[in-house]
Amino acid sequence: MANQNGATADLKSTFLDVYSVLKSELTNDPAFQFTDDSRQWVERMLEYNVPGGKLNRGLSVIDSYKLLKEGKDLTEEEIFLASTLGWCIEWLQAFFLVLDDIMDNSHTRRGQPCWFRVPKVGMIAVNDGVLLRNHIPRILKKHFRQKPYYVDLLDLFNEVEFQTASGQMIDLITTLEGEKDLSKYTLPLHRRIVEYKTAYYSFYLPVACALLMAGENLDEHISVKDILVEMGIYFQVQDDYLDCFGDPKKIGKIGTDIEDFKCSWLVVKALENCNEEQKQVLYEHYGKENPANVERVKALYNDLNLQGVFEEFESKSYEKLTTGIEAHPSKAVQAVLKSFLAKIYKRQK
């Protein structure tokens, strides 16, 4: 295991080295005449928003590409290019989060104030979000323009960005202020929000990048997309579950889905399984910030045995995903999908 951890640490430090190269290229982009002030602003904005997360999405491009190469040692160029695509996903994530936090009026992100809450940043963060989004094609153009799959990469990022923004829209218009209506919350709605807002960019995009680099045609891998989207939905259901039943020490945050009137899998299942009296309890207490209201909802979740309902969902999802993965004709693709599933199955954080 020590070797495994050592290899992971090496991979992460190589990955971070590539970030430094990309940051330097972007802050010296010949398409714009930087002043000292503007260069410093972009550097500080990137440092604050891009490399601070867990980097799972970015690193999984390299992991997936390695598995597709079936144990062959990667060249330095391959490691650099796979890392660069990984960073494009981290840039996309940063762009979404900077703007998400403004829309949600959030206070903290990754243990520090949201970027727009930093003194002297404020609404400049909107333009910073636009800049982050525009950095992606700059990176792709510089490093992939000569590659046969360049246009496919541009297409892929554009499509996934559109899907994610559309998922965010469904989420936002479902929870309009002053229009809290639990009767809208159904399993199909929850699924649509999650599929578009999370599954495409978090699960499908890293693998699709690796497949393109390996010379594959994405049109021939629709089943891979379907499995990864299912995995993304399973992941979000886990997230919804952990928000309420997880250990805050392990997940690193205190869940607020109940207070925030989120279209969470738990509330959808509660609405499906409760009687009229219990439904009234939900309508009365869900979406209120008072701890007593939150406790009342949690007590109802316990009465309805939602932990048991979740455990059943988890084992059925795992079974269905494993069957789908094992039906894939390519052992290398199976290995990629299995490694994704192993990372998330029965996770506690």
Score class of each variant (00 low, 15 high):
F313K: 08
M45Q: 00
A214F: 06
A2Y: 03
F116E: 03
G232W: 12
M1K: 15
D260P: 01
Y65F: 15
L172K: 11
C244E: 02
D226V: 06
T75S: 15
L97I: 06
G252V: 03
K120D: 14
A165F: 05
M123S: 14
I193Q: 13
N275D: 15
N5H: 09
Y286M: 05
E326D: 13
E311F: 13
Y201I: 05
F96C: 00
N56K: 06
N28H: 15
K331Y: 07
L306T: 10
E326F: 13
W265L: 09
L153Y: 09
G167H: 06
L140F: 12
F96W: 02
A7N: 14
T256M: 03
Q163D: 10
T84P: 05
K66T: 06
T84G: 06
K120C: 14
E78V: 07
E78Q: 14
P206G: 08
Y149K: 01
A125R: 10
N217H: 12
P329S: 14
F80D: 02
L74I: 01
K343M: 05
K142L: 01
T35F: 05
K66N: 04
L212K: 04
H285T: 06
E78K: 07
E259M: 06
L228T: 09
E76P: 07
V309I: 09
V333M: 15
L187H: 13
Y283T: 10
D226T: 08
W265E: 04
I258N: 12
T174R: 03
Q4I: 02
E47P: 00
C114N: 08
C209S: 13
F32G: 00
I62N: 11
M123W: 11
N293W: 07
E159I: 11
G287L: 08
D152Y: 04
S330K: 07
A210M: 12
P148C: 00
L282F: 07
F162Q: 12
L92V: 03
S223E: 15
V297R: 04
C114M: 07
Q236W: 11
G232T: 10
N3P: 09
V309K: 04
S264Y: 01
L187E: 12
L156A: 09
C114H: 07
L153G: 05
Y149G: 00
R192L: 13
N28F: 08
D104E: 11
Y241E: 01
L46F: 04
G287W: 06
A342C: 08
P329G: 12
R347D: 00
H135V: 02
G129D: 04
I325R: 02
I193V: 14
E314A: 15
R57L: 07
C88N: 08
V297L: 03
I170R: 11
P51S: 02
P51A: 00
M213L: 15
T75V: 05
W41G: 00
W91T: 09
K269V: 06
E220L: 13
I222W: 10
K225L: 13
K349Y: 14
M169F: 14
P148V: 02
R109I: 00
E179F: 09
E161G: 13
K346V: 04
L16K: 14
Q334W: 03
S24D: 13
I139H: 12
